[in-house]
Simulated scan of single mutants.
Amino acid sequence: MLTYLTSSFRQYCKEWSEADLEKFNVFIFKNILRHIFRLESILPILMVILVVALSIQAQRATYIFIPQSSLTAYATFVVLQLSIALLVIFIYPFLIILSFNYIGYRLPHIIPRIFLPTKLILLLLTFYLCLRLISHDTLKPVIEILVVATWASLYFFLMNLYLAYKHKRNALHLGKFRLIFILLFLALMIKPFSMMLYRTAEMINFMEVNPLLFIDSNQCKLIGRKINSSVKDTNMAINNPEIIERTSNGCFLYGNVIRFGFASDYVIMFKKNMYPVAEADGLYNYYAHLSCYSGNCFVEDNVRINVLNDISNKILMK
């Protein structure tokens, strides 16, 4: 059994190493992209991706803000946000893979002779360099690694489909091996995908991190309530002059703030503690969500988030 598996793996690697890259590109165009971008296929795919994207964002965020008076603008924003995330996670790797294959095809006397691990290193290096070029060095190393791994898993999946197609097997049959690649791709893409959604929100000013804000005295009182008796005053952001400056009409916020909004509808997420609050079951951050719709404001106070799951704090600390 072990001998059979070893022999099969060697044969698989040999076929992979000697794959005709021009035919691989043709396969991607004719059998993958053509089917994906057919109207009857793309609409349900986009709907599923939209639902998944909103679900990922909802699960990873501490607050989802939907403006009441600017729904059209918000819908446009969601489409733009999703498009940019899809461009990075799905479209760019296809373009890079097609370009990589084309260059490999144009070097027929070199590429087939290169040892497979060397090809994989060249592929990963190409992914990495292209990502650095696209992102302008703005992504953290962890996100870069996850994006490259996501793109690599997509490449492996496409190659597996191509080899099945080459041997006249059903390329779209979902076997265990392909299911592993799909699950790996989905697992790897969740964090980069969610970060792309947040980056897009910040780029188009739907989300602003630590902007200089002025809020009136009533709003200042709403976010300034004490967390609980166990939290020292020195750990309260409202008492830190570097975070807040009080005036006769209200207060200026200089930090610990994330603002979401369109026009007169906005939400201010204010982190109330300076450092995590130690409790029996872990470390927590506390937030006040000040929501304002057409001038009417209310607050959801002392929203308790475990530090390990607090993506808002990671955004504030970047």
Rank of each mutant, 00 (worst) to 15 (best):
Y92S: 07
I42H: 03
L39E: 02
F24V: 04
I268N: 03
N309Y: 08
E279H: 04
I103T: 14
I111G: 09
L123V: 05
F24P: 00
S55T: 12
N240W: 13
V88D: 02
M274D: 12
I42D: 03
I182N: 00
S135A: 14
K23W: 07
E245G: 13
L131Y: 07
F206E: 04
M317R: 09
I215S: 03
F29P: 09
N210M: 09
S248A: 15
I103V: 15
R10Q: 12
T62C: 01
C292L: 03
Y128C: 09
F252M: 11
E15H: 15
F94W: 08
S294V: 01
E208W: 03
K272Q: 09
P117D: 06
N285R: 01
F77G: 12
L86W: 01
D216E: 13
K226S: 10
V147S: 10
C251E: 11
H289I: 01
E144C: 11
V277F: 07
N309M: 03
M317K: 07
L43N: 02
L39T: 13
A152I: 08
N249H: 14
H173S: 14
R199C: 06
S69V: 05
F90Q: 02
A73W: 01
A237E: 12
K318C: 06
A280Y: 05
Q68I: 04
I103H: 06
S229M: 09
R106Q: 14
N170F: 11
K314V: 05
V307F: 03
L87V: 00
V52W: 02
P141W: 07
R225P: 06
A75N: 10
L54P: 02
S230G: 04
T234L: 13
A164K: 15
Y284G: 04
N296Y: 12
I28G: 07
G175A: 11
K140L: 14
D310I: 03
D301P: 02
C297E: 02
C251T: 09
L82S: 09
Y102S: 15
L2D: 04
H167K: 15
I182M: 10
N31V: 00
F100P: 00
C292R: 02
M236P: 03
R10I: 11
L46Y: 05
N101W: 10
E279D: 04
V209N: 08
I110Y: 11
V79R: 02
S8F: 08
I42K: 10
C292D: 03
K166F: 10
K168V: 11
S230Y: 06
Y286W: 01
I223R: 03
A164P: 01
W151R: 03
R304Y: 05
A19Y: 01
D137K: 12
L188S: 04
I180E: 01
L212V: 15
A164D: 14
K168D: 15
V257Y: 01
I121M: 08
I223E: 07
I143L: 15
